[in-house]
Write a protein that binds this DNA or RNA. Structure first.
Lengths: 224, 224
DNA sequence: GTCATAAGGATTTTCGAAAATCATTGACTC
DNA sequence: GAGTCAATGATTTTCGAAAATCCTTATGAC
Protein backbone atom coordinates (compact mmCIF):
# COMPACT_ATOMS: atom_id res chain seq x y z
CA UNK A 1 0.00 0.00 0.00
CA UNK A 2 1.33 3.36 -0.96
CA UNK A 3 1.26 5.97 1.74
CA UNK A 4 0.98 9.65 1.00
CA UNK A 5 3.20 11.82 3.10
CA UNK A 6 3.05 15.44 2.01
CA UNK A 7 6.04 17.37 3.25
CA UNK A 8 7.98 14.44 4.61
CA UNK A 9 9.88 11.69 2.96
CA UNK A 10 10.02 9.40 5.94
CA UNK A 11 7.67 8.66 8.80
CA UNK A 12 10.38 9.71 11.23
CA UNK A 13 10.52 13.10 9.54
CA UNK A 14 6.76 13.46 9.80
CA UNK A 15 6.83 12.53 13.46
CA UNK A 16 9.56 15.08 14.07
CA UNK A 17 7.56 17.88 12.46
CA UNK A 18 4.36 16.86 14.15
CA UNK A 19 5.73 16.55 17.66
CA UNK A 20 7.70 19.76 17.35
CA UNK A 21 4.53 21.53 16.24
CA UNK A 22 2.68 20.16 19.26
CA UNK A 23 5.39 21.47 21.55
CA UNK A 24 5.54 24.79 19.72
CA UNK A 25 1.81 25.32 20.01
CA UNK A 26 1.71 24.31 23.63
CA UNK A 27 -0.43 21.22 23.06
CA UNK A 28 2.43 19.45 24.83
CA UNK A 29 3.34 21.72 27.72
CA UNK A 30 6.71 22.29 29.40
CA UNK A 31 7.77 19.40 31.58
CA UNK A 32 5.07 17.12 30.21
CA UNK A 33 5.96 13.50 29.92
CA UNK A 34 5.94 12.10 26.39
CA UNK A 35 4.91 8.45 26.33
CA UNK A 36 5.55 6.37 23.27
CA UNK A 37 2.07 4.89 23.39
CA UNK A 38 0.49 8.34 23.12
CA UNK A 39 2.82 9.57 20.41
CA UNK A 40 2.33 6.41 18.37
CA UNK A 41 -1.41 6.95 18.52
CA UNK A 42 -1.03 10.62 17.60
CA UNK A 43 1.22 9.93 14.64
CA UNK A 44 -0.32 6.63 13.59
CA UNK A 45 2.96 4.80 13.38
CA UNK A 46 5.18 2.36 15.21
CA UNK A 47 7.64 3.13 17.96
CA UNK A 48 10.74 3.30 15.75
CA UNK A 49 10.09 6.53 13.84
CA UNK A 50 8.69 8.19 16.96
CA UNK A 51 11.88 7.34 18.75
CA UNK A 52 13.97 8.82 15.99
CA UNK A 53 11.93 12.02 16.13
CA UNK A 54 12.48 12.33 19.87
CA UNK A 55 16.20 11.74 19.45
CA UNK A 56 16.40 14.66 17.04
CA UNK A 57 14.23 16.89 19.19
CA UNK A 58 16.41 16.14 22.20
CA UNK A 59 19.59 17.00 20.30
CA UNK A 60 17.99 20.35 19.48
CA UNK A 61 16.91 21.11 23.03
CA UNK A 62 13.13 20.76 22.69
CA UNK A 63 12.87 17.60 24.74
CA UNK A 64 14.95 15.89 27.40
CA UNK A 65 15.81 12.26 27.92
CA UNK A 66 16.27 10.35 31.14
CA UNK A 67 17.77 6.99 30.28
CA UNK A 68 15.21 4.26 30.70
CA UNK A 69 12.83 6.83 32.15
CA UNK A 70 11.62 8.36 28.93
CA UNK A 71 11.32 11.70 27.23
CA UNK A 72 9.74 14.94 28.44
CA UNK A 73 9.12 18.34 26.95
CA UNK A 74 11.97 20.65 27.97
CA UNK A 75 10.99 23.01 30.77
CA UNK A 76 11.05 26.77 30.40
CA UNK A 77 12.82 28.96 32.91
CA UNK A 78 13.78 32.57 33.32
CA UNK A 79 17.43 31.55 33.50
CA UNK A 80 17.22 29.78 30.15
CA UNK A 81 15.31 32.63 28.56
CA UNK A 82 18.09 35.01 29.53
CA UNK A 83 20.73 32.52 28.48
CA UNK A 84 19.22 31.88 25.06
CA UNK A 85 18.65 35.58 24.55
CA UNK A 86 22.30 36.35 25.22
CA UNK A 87 23.39 33.61 22.83
CA UNK A 88 21.02 34.93 20.18
CA UNK A 89 22.31 38.46 20.59
CA UNK A 90 25.82 37.19 20.07
CA UNK A 91 25.17 34.82 17.15
CA UNK A 92 22.31 36.50 15.30
CA UNK A 93 23.84 39.89 15.91
CA UNK A 94 27.03 38.80 14.20
CA UNK A 95 25.16 36.97 11.45
CA UNK A 96 23.11 40.09 10.72
CA UNK A 97 26.21 42.25 10.72
CA UNK A 98 27.87 39.95 8.20
CA UNK A 99 24.72 39.85 6.12
CA UNK A 100 24.60 43.61 5.87
CA UNK A 101 28.27 43.65 4.90
CA UNK A 102 28.06 40.83 2.37
CA UNK A 103 24.48 40.90 1.15
CA UNK A 104 23.80 41.50 -2.51
CA UNK A 105 20.72 42.87 -4.28
CA UNK A 106 19.03 39.49 -4.10
CA UNK A 107 19.38 39.49 -0.33
CA UNK A 108 17.90 42.98 -0.20
CA UNK A 109 14.99 41.64 -2.21
CA UNK A 110 14.44 38.79 0.23
CA UNK A 111 14.45 41.20 3.17
CA UNK A 112 12.05 43.53 1.45
CA UNK A 113 9.70 40.79 0.31
CA UNK A 114 9.58 38.93 3.63
CA UNK A 115 8.95 42.17 5.50
CA UNK A 116 6.15 43.02 3.13
CA UNK A 117 4.48 39.68 3.76
CA UNK A 118 4.84 40.22 7.49
CA UNK A 119 2.97 43.52 7.36
CA UNK A 120 0.05 42.12 5.39
CA UNK A 121 -1.52 40.28 8.30
CA UNK A 122 -2.04 41.31 11.93
CA UNK A 123 0.41 40.17 14.55
CA UNK A 124 -0.40 37.01 16.49
CA UNK A 125 -2.68 37.63 19.47
CA UNK A 126 -5.27 35.90 21.54
CA UNK A 127 -8.16 37.47 19.69
CA UNK A 128 -6.84 36.42 16.29
CA UNK A 129 -7.96 33.10 14.77
CA UNK A 130 -5.43 30.35 15.27
CA UNK A 131 -4.84 29.74 11.57
CA UNK A 132 -3.93 33.34 10.92
CA UNK A 133 -1.80 33.39 14.04
CA UNK A 134 0.25 30.50 12.71
CA UNK A 135 0.52 32.34 9.43
CA UNK A 136 2.04 35.35 11.16
CA UNK A 137 4.44 33.18 13.16
CA UNK A 138 5.67 31.65 9.94
CA UNK A 139 6.19 34.97 8.22
CA UNK A 140 7.86 36.36 11.32
CA UNK A 141 10.35 33.51 11.32
CA UNK A 142 10.90 33.96 7.57
CA UNK A 143 11.65 37.67 8.00
CA UNK A 144 14.23 37.08 10.68
CA UNK A 145 15.75 34.27 8.63
CA UNK A 146 15.99 36.59 5.64
CA UNK A 147 17.84 39.24 7.63
CA UNK A 148 20.76 36.94 8.36
CA UNK A 149 20.56 34.82 5.21
CA UNK A 150 23.51 36.51 3.51
CA UNK A 151 26.00 36.06 6.33
CA UNK A 152 27.82 33.40 4.34
CA UNK A 153 28.25 30.98 7.23
CA UNK A 154 26.18 27.78 7.15
CA UNK A 155 27.42 26.89 10.63
CA UNK A 156 26.30 30.19 12.11
CA UNK A 157 22.97 29.96 10.28
CA UNK A 158 22.34 26.52 11.71
CA UNK A 159 23.10 27.77 15.23
CA UNK A 160 20.82 30.76 14.73
CA UNK A 161 18.00 28.63 13.37
CA UNK A 162 18.07 26.44 16.44
CA UNK A 163 18.29 29.37 18.84
CA UNK A 164 15.40 31.09 17.10
CA UNK A 165 13.20 28.05 17.45
CA UNK A 166 14.04 27.56 21.08
CA UNK A 167 13.44 31.22 21.82
CA UNK A 168 10.20 30.98 19.89
CA UNK A 169 8.72 28.79 22.59
CA UNK A 170 9.19 31.66 24.99
CA UNK A 171 8.02 34.34 22.63
CA UNK A 172 4.75 32.57 22.01
CA UNK A 173 3.85 33.07 25.63
CA UNK A 174 3.48 36.76 24.84
CA UNK A 175 0.48 36.36 22.54
CA UNK A 176 -1.58 37.04 25.65
CA UNK A 177 0.18 40.35 26.15
CA UNK A 178 -1.35 43.18 24.20
CA UNK A 179 2.04 44.68 23.66
CA UNK A 180 0.75 48.17 24.27
CA UNK A 181 4.10 49.35 25.51
CA UNK A 182 5.87 48.11 22.43
CA UNK A 183 5.77 48.76 18.73
CA UNK A 184 6.96 45.44 17.36
CA UNK A 185 5.96 46.27 13.80
CA UNK A 186 7.97 49.48 14.05
CA UNK A 187 11.01 47.57 15.29
CA UNK A 188 10.76 45.22 12.35
CA UNK A 189 10.56 48.13 9.96
CA UNK A 190 13.62 49.68 11.59
CA UNK A 191 15.52 46.44 11.14
CA UNK A 192 14.61 46.35 7.49
CA UNK A 193 15.57 49.99 6.99
CA UNK A 194 18.93 49.52 8.67
CA UNK A 195 19.58 46.42 6.59
CA UNK A 196 18.85 48.24 3.33
CA UNK A 197 20.84 51.28 4.39
CA UNK A 198 23.84 48.94 4.83
CA UNK A 199 24.83 50.24 8.23
CA UNK A 200 26.14 46.97 9.64
CA UNK A 201 27.02 48.08 13.15
CA UNK A 202 23.78 49.88 13.85
CA UNK A 203 21.81 47.05 12.28
CA UNK A 204 23.42 44.50 14.56
CA UNK A 205 22.82 46.71 17.59
CA UNK A 206 19.18 47.14 16.69
CA UNK A 207 18.67 43.40 16.35
CA UNK A 208 20.28 42.78 19.72
CA UNK A 209 18.05 45.40 21.29
CA UNK A 210 15.03 43.90 19.57
CA UNK A 211 15.73 40.54 21.19
CA UNK A 212 16.50 42.20 24.49
CA UNK A 213 13.11 43.89 24.50
CA UNK A 214 11.35 40.68 23.61
CA UNK A 215 13.02 38.86 26.47
CA UNK A 216 12.33 41.67 28.92
CA UNK A 217 8.63 41.61 28.06
CA UNK A 218 8.53 37.91 28.85
CA UNK A 219 10.10 38.10 32.28
CA UNK A 220 6.75 38.81 33.91
CA UNK A 221 5.71 35.22 33.20
CA UNK A 222 8.32 33.96 35.59
CA UNK A 223 7.35 35.82 38.74
CA UNK A 224 6.43 33.29 41.34
CA UNK B 1 23.87 7.04 44.69
CA UNK B 2 23.44 6.15 41.09
CA UNK B 3 26.20 7.19 38.78
CA UNK B 4 26.26 7.83 35.09
CA UNK B 5 28.99 5.72 33.65
CA UNK B 6 30.68 7.18 30.62
CA UNK B 7 30.32 4.58 27.97
CA UNK B 8 26.61 4.60 28.23
CA UNK B 9 23.75 3.00 30.01
CA UNK B 10 22.02 2.16 26.81
CA UNK B 11 23.23 0.38 23.71
CA UNK B 12 22.32 3.43 21.67
CA UNK B 13 24.66 5.50 23.83
CA UNK B 14 27.43 3.00 23.38
CA UNK B 15 26.96 2.99 19.64
CA UNK B 16 27.06 6.78 19.59
CA UNK B 17 30.36 6.90 21.46
CA UNK B 18 31.86 4.12 19.43
CA UNK B 19 30.94 5.42 16.01
CA UNK B 20 31.97 8.96 16.91
CA UNK B 21 35.32 7.63 18.05
CA UNK B 22 35.76 5.79 14.76
CA UNK B 23 35.07 8.99 12.87
CA UNK B 24 37.31 11.01 15.15
CA UNK B 25 40.21 8.65 14.71
CA UNK B 26 39.77 8.44 10.98
CA UNK B 27 38.86 4.76 10.94
CA UNK B 28 35.76 5.95 9.12
CA UNK B 29 37.03 8.54 6.67
CA UNK B 30 35.30 11.65 5.33
CA UNK B 31 32.59 10.85 2.82
CA UNK B 32 32.61 7.16 3.65
CA UNK B 33 29.32 5.39 3.46
CA UNK B 34 28.07 3.95 6.75
CA UNK B 35 26.04 0.78 6.21
CA UNK B 36 23.87 -0.55 8.95
CA UNK B 37 25.09 -4.08 8.41
CA UNK B 38 28.69 -3.04 9.07
CA UNK B 39 27.87 -0.91 12.08
CA UNK B 40 25.72 -3.63 13.60
CA UNK B 41 28.64 -6.01 13.29
CA UNK B 42 31.04 -3.45 14.75
CA UNK B 43 28.84 -2.66 17.73
CA UNK B 44 27.35 -6.13 18.19
CA UNK B 45 23.79 -4.95 18.34
CA UNK B 46 20.62 -4.64 16.33
CA UNK B 47 19.73 -1.92 13.88
CA UNK B 48 17.63 0.16 16.28
CA UNK B 49 20.35 1.52 18.60
CA UNK B 50 22.70 2.03 15.66
CA UNK B 51 20.06 4.10 13.97
CA UNK B 52 19.59 6.22 17.06
CA UNK B 53 23.33 6.83 17.25
CA UNK B 54 23.43 7.99 13.64
CA UNK B 55 20.48 10.28 14.20
CA UNK B 56 22.35 11.98 17.03
CA UNK B 57 25.61 12.17 15.09
CA UNK B 58 23.79 13.72 12.16
CA UNK B 59 22.18 16.35 14.37
CA UNK B 60 25.66 17.26 15.56
CA UNK B 61 27.18 17.47 12.11
CA UNK B 62 29.43 14.41 12.13
CA UNK B 63 27.40 12.44 9.62
CA UNK B 64 24.91 13.23 6.88
CA UNK B 65 21.69 11.55 5.88
CA UNK B 66 20.20 11.10 2.44
CA UNK B 67 16.65 9.89 2.92
CA UNK B 68 16.35 6.27 1.94
CA UNK B 69 19.92 6.40 0.72
CA UNK B 70 21.66 6.04 4.05
CA UNK B 71 24.23 7.78 6.20
CA UNK B 72 27.75 8.92 5.38
CA UNK B 73 30.60 10.48 7.31
CA UNK B 74 30.48 14.25 6.82
CA UNK B 75 33.06 15.48 4.34
CA UNK B 76 35.78 17.94 5.27
CA UNK B 77 36.37 21.06 3.22
CA UNK B 78 38.42 24.19 3.40
CA UNK B 79 35.24 26.24 3.30
CA UNK B 80 33.85 24.45 6.32
CA UNK B 81 37.14 24.69 8.18
CA UNK B 82 37.08 28.45 7.75
CA UNK B 83 33.40 28.59 8.60
CA UNK B 84 33.73 26.58 11.78
CA UNK B 85 36.81 28.54 12.79
CA UNK B 86 34.96 31.82 12.46
CA UNK B 87 32.06 30.48 14.50
CA UNK B 88 34.46 29.24 17.16
CA UNK B 89 36.21 32.57 17.34
CA UNK B 90 32.88 34.23 17.89
CA UNK B 91 31.39 31.79 20.39
CA UNK B 92 34.43 30.53 22.28
CA UNK B 93 35.94 33.98 22.27
CA UNK B 94 32.89 35.37 24.00
CA UNK B 95 32.62 32.37 26.33
CA UNK B 96 36.25 32.84 27.36
CA UNK B 97 35.75 36.55 27.87
CA UNK B 98 32.77 35.88 30.13
CA UNK B 99 34.71 33.22 31.98
CA UNK B 100 37.53 35.59 32.76
CA UNK B 101 35.01 38.16 33.95
CA UNK B 102 32.92 35.79 36.03
CA UNK B 103 35.32 33.03 37.01
CA UNK B 104 35.99 32.39 40.67
CA UNK B 105 38.95 30.79 42.41
CA UNK B 106 37.62 27.34 41.66
CA UNK B 107 37.64 28.14 37.97
CA UNK B 108 41.22 29.38 38.23
CA UNK B 109 42.05 26.09 39.84
CA UNK B 110 40.49 24.13 36.99
CA UNK B 111 42.42 26.15 34.43
CA UNK B 112 45.67 25.69 36.30
CA UNK B 113 45.16 21.98 36.88
CA UNK B 114 44.09 21.14 33.36
CA UNK B 115 47.02 23.09 31.92
CA UNK B 116 49.39 21.27 34.19
CA UNK B 117 48.09 17.92 32.99
CA UNK B 118 48.48 19.07 29.40
CA UNK B 119 52.16 19.86 29.88
CA UNK B 120 52.97 16.51 31.44
CA UNK B 121 52.87 14.55 28.20
CA UNK B 122 54.20 15.36 24.73
CA UNK B 123 51.86 16.77 22.13
CA UNK B 124 50.20 14.35 19.74
CA UNK B 125 52.37 13.53 16.73
CA UNK B 126 52.96 10.77 14.26
CA UNK B 127 55.96 9.44 16.13
CA UNK B 128 54.09 9.21 19.42
CA UNK B 129 52.33 5.99 20.38
CA UNK B 130 48.62 6.09 19.65
CA UNK B 131 47.55 5.59 23.26
CA UNK B 132 49.55 8.56 24.47
CA UNK B 133 48.33 10.57 21.53
CA UNK B 134 44.75 9.99 22.58
CA UNK B 135 45.71 10.94 26.08
CA UNK B 136 47.02 14.29 24.91
CA UNK B 137 43.93 14.88 22.79
CA UNK B 138 41.76 14.33 25.82
CA UNK B 139 43.77 16.68 28.02
CA UNK B 140 43.85 19.27 25.27
CA UNK B 141 40.06 19.19 25.03
CA UNK B 142 39.79 19.37 28.82
CA UNK B 143 42.04 22.43 28.97
CA UNK B 144 40.03 24.33 26.41
CA UNK B 145 36.81 23.29 28.13
CA UNK B 146 38.17 24.58 31.44
CA UNK B 147 38.99 27.99 29.97
CA UNK B 148 35.37 28.69 29.10
CA UNK B 149 33.75 26.70 31.89
CA UNK B 150 32.90 29.73 34.01
CA UNK B 151 31.06 31.67 31.31
CA UNK B 152 27.75 30.96 33.01
CA UNK B 153 25.87 30.09 29.84
CA UNK B 154 24.89 26.44 29.33
CA UNK B 155 23.62 27.26 25.86
CA UNK B 156 26.89 28.84 24.79
CA UNK B 157 28.85 25.98 26.34
CA UNK B 158 26.83 23.45 24.41
CA UNK B 159 27.46 25.33 21.17
CA UNK B 160 31.18 25.54 21.94
CA UNK B 161 31.39 21.88 22.80
CA UNK B 162 29.94 20.91 19.45
CA UNK B 163 32.11 23.35 17.52
CA UNK B 164 35.21 22.11 19.29
CA UNK B 165 34.46 18.52 18.37
CA UNK B 166 33.77 19.35 14.77
CA UNK B 167 36.93 21.43 14.53
CA UNK B 168 38.80 18.60 16.18
CA UNK B 169 38.32 16.45 13.11
CA UNK B 170 40.29 19.02 11.17
CA UNK B 171 42.91 19.61 13.81
CA UNK B 172 43.75 15.94 13.97
CA UNK B 173 44.96 16.12 10.41
CA UNK B 174 47.86 18.15 11.72
CA UNK B 175 49.47 15.37 13.74
CA UNK B 176 51.56 14.78 10.63
CA UNK B 177 52.82 18.33 10.77
CA UNK B 178 55.78 18.83 13.03
CA UNK B 179 54.58 22.30 13.93
CA UNK B 180 58.07 23.71 13.71
CA UNK B 181 56.78 27.15 12.85
CA UNK B 182 54.48 27.18 15.81
CA UNK B 183 54.80 27.04 19.57
CA UNK B 184 51.49 25.49 20.53
CA UNK B 185 52.55 24.81 24.09
CA UNK B 186 53.57 28.43 24.44
CA UNK B 187 50.20 29.59 23.14
CA UNK B 188 48.46 27.41 25.69
CA UNK B 189 50.57 28.87 28.45
CA UNK B 190 49.76 32.37 27.26
CA UNK B 191 46.05 31.54 27.35
CA UNK B 192 46.39 30.31 30.90
CA UNK B 193 48.38 33.34 31.97
CA UNK B 194 45.86 35.74 30.46
CA UNK B 195 43.03 33.87 32.12
CA UNK B 196 44.64 34.08 35.53
CA UNK B 197 45.60 37.72 35.05
CA UNK B 198 41.88 38.42 34.48
CA UNK B 199 42.38 40.50 31.37
CA UNK B 200 39.18 39.48 29.59
CA UNK B 201 39.62 41.35 26.34
CA UNK B 202 43.19 40.30 25.70
CA UNK B 203 42.36 36.75 26.72
CA UNK B 204 39.51 36.54 24.21
CA UNK B 205 41.72 37.99 21.48
CA UNK B 206 44.47 35.48 22.22
CA UNK B 207 42.03 32.58 21.99
CA UNK B 208 40.70 33.81 18.67
CA UNK B 209 44.20 34.14 17.35
CA UNK B 210 45.05 30.69 18.64
CA UNK B 211 42.20 29.20 16.62
CA UNK B 212 43.11 31.32 13.64
CA UNK B 213 46.65 29.97 13.65
CA UNK B 214 45.41 26.42 13.99
CA UNK B 215 43.11 26.83 11.00
CA UNK B 216 45.82 28.52 8.94
CA UNK B 217 48.21 25.64 9.56
CA UNK B 218 45.60 23.23 8.23
CA UNK B 219 44.90 25.00 4.98
CA UNK B 220 47.80 23.25 3.26
CA UNK B 221 45.81 20.01 3.36
CA UNK B 222 43.25 21.45 0.99
CA UNK B 223 45.53 22.48 -1.90
CA UNK B 224 44.53 20.60 -4.97
C1' DG C 1 5.52 3.83 62.43
C1' DT C 2 9.73 3.22 59.53
C1' DC C 3 12.56 0.88 56.79
C1' DA C 4 13.76 -2.62 53.70
C1' DT C 5 12.46 -5.81 50.24
C1' DA C 6 9.85 -8.21 46.74
C1' DA C 7 6.08 -8.72 43.39
C1' DG C 8 3.42 -6.70 39.73
C1' DG C 9 2.44 -3.37 36.28
C1' DA C 10 3.86 0.29 33.26
C1' DT C 11 7.19 1.97 30.16
C1' DT C 12 11.33 2.13 27.69
C1' DT C 13 14.72 -0.20 24.92
C1' DT C 14 16.11 -3.69 21.81
C1' DC C 15 15.47 -7.36 18.57
C1' DG C 16 14.62 -9.89 14.16
C1' DA C 17 12.03 -9.78 10.26
C1' DA C 18 8.85 -7.60 6.91
C1' DA C 19 7.94 -3.69 3.94
C1' DA C 20 9.47 0.11 1.27
C1' DT C 21 12.82 2.36 -1.39
C1' DC C 22 16.90 2.92 -4.09
C1' DA C 23 20.51 1.39 -7.44
C1' DT C 24 21.86 -1.76 -11.07
C1' DT C 25 21.32 -4.70 -14.76
C1' DG C 26 19.67 -6.22 -19.02
C1' DA C 27 16.13 -6.64 -22.45
C1' DC C 28 13.62 -4.10 -25.73
C1' DT C 29 12.28 -0.24 -28.80
C1' DC C 30 13.32 3.51 -31.88
C1' DG D 1 23.84 3.70 -30.15
C1' DA D 2 20.64 6.15 -27.00
C1' DG D 3 16.77 5.85 -24.27
C1' DT D 4 12.90 3.57 -21.77
C1' DC D 5 11.34 0.26 -18.67
C1' DA D 6 10.89 -3.92 -15.91
C1' DA D 7 13.20 -7.19 -12.97
C1' DT D 8 16.57 -8.05 -9.53
C1' DG D 9 19.50 -7.29 -5.61
C1' DA D 10 21.10 -4.26 -1.97
C1' DT D 11 19.91 -1.22 1.61
C1' DT D 12 17.13 1.60 4.36
C1' DT D 13 12.95 2.18 6.98
C1' DT D 14 9.25 0.44 9.66
C1' DC D 15 6.76 -2.90 12.26
C1' DG D 16 5.15 -5.80 16.24
C1' DA D 17 6.69 -8.23 19.94
C1' DA D 18 10.23 -9.65 23.32
C1' DA D 19 13.52 -8.18 26.78
C1' DA D 20 15.14 -4.96 30.07
C1' DT D 21 14.37 -1.39 33.22
C1' DC D 22 11.88 1.57 36.22
C1' DC D 23 8.04 2.81 39.29
C1' DT D 24 4.37 1.64 42.48
C1' DT D 25 2.39 -1.03 45.75
C1' DA D 26 2.15 -4.64 49.03
C1' DT D 27 4.31 -7.30 52.58
C1' DG D 28 6.97 -8.20 56.60
C1' DA D 29 10.54 -7.30 60.21
C1' DC D 30 12.16 -4.36 63.80
Amino acid sequence: MEQKRPGGRTLAGDAYERIRQQIRSGAFGPGERLRFADLQALCSMSVTPVREALTRLTAEGFTTLDDHRGYSVARLSLAELRDITAARQLCEGEAFRLSVLNGDAEWEGRVLASHHLLTRIPQARDDIPSAMREDWEERHAAFHAALISACGSPTLLEICRNLFRRADRYRRMSVSLDGAARDVAGEHRTLMDLALSRDAERAASALKEHYGRTAAALEIFFES
